[in-house]
Design a binder for these strands. Structure first.
Lengths: 117, 117
DNA sequence: ATTTTATAACTAATTAGTTAGTTTTATAAC
DNA sequence: GTTATAAAACTAACTAATTAGTTATAAAAT
């Protein structure tokens, strides 16, 4: 699986949210300043070539949908972050941010208890 | 703090490891295929402009060192990941990867116990 | 003092990514 | 059937990033 560029990621985030969409609909979901219709259209065709999206054709128009899930993509990029900055260990990441008090220990404790059941 | 491009990040990773270095030394630390000396030199000057590195001059030659720590940078990019993919919550990230069994629950429990002391 | 060497600085060339105009084509409206 | 419309496909222009050659300059060697 390849990495997404900034512009590609932006489109994917929208598509992951709406699950399927025509270019026009993607554009509608985007924040100002909106890119040109053709810009979105170009990027989605790049995403097609990268095998991140596919489409169903309705006559001439295409309804696009993700073929890489948000979950799979976030798994990949999280792992890449952990490998580059936390020695490949999620435990290191947790302990790093727990020390910085960015993670609540009680809450974490609850999460573990729930998962252990 | 700005984001690093791929090439910039590569140089920073080396510099963070060796703590201070002349261009020649950075190059020596890099894996094949090694870039040209001038490539490294250019990138480090970009990093200078971005305020990621500074240097001490020895006559004409510069010994570069990071002015943004690895810790600060990894904090930033981790937060950016969490905000984009985990709804801004580290707890979400932990629970996501715990469910995928990428994080060992016992180990996590130990970490929490240690930190609570 | 002149030549050599090593380095930073500058600059040019290339490649990757982004943006949007133009063209083509299928469908819809008349 | 011709014209209008809307979308994808193609393409060009632009911007950002990468790579490395050329130049200038300071220090070292002779």
């Amino acid at each position: 699986m390849q990495e997404l560029t900034k512009a590609e990621e932006q489109i994917m985030q929208v598509l992951w949210t709406v699950e399927k969409a025509f270019v026009k609909e993607l554009l509608a979901e985007m924040n100002e300043p909106k890119p040109a219709y053709n810009t979105v259209s170009t990027i989605i065709r790049i995403l097609e070539k990268k095998d991140f999206v596919s489409f169903t054709a309705f006559g001439k128009t295409h309804q696009y949908y993700p073929i890489v899930s948000r979950e799979d993509y976030k798994t990949q990029i999280s792992k890449s972050l952990v490998s580059k900055y936390f020695d490949g260990s999620f435990e290191n990441l947790v302990s790093f941010f727990a020390k910085k008090e960015e993670i609540d220990l009680e809450e974490l404790d609850d999460i573990i208890k729930t998962l252990k059941k």
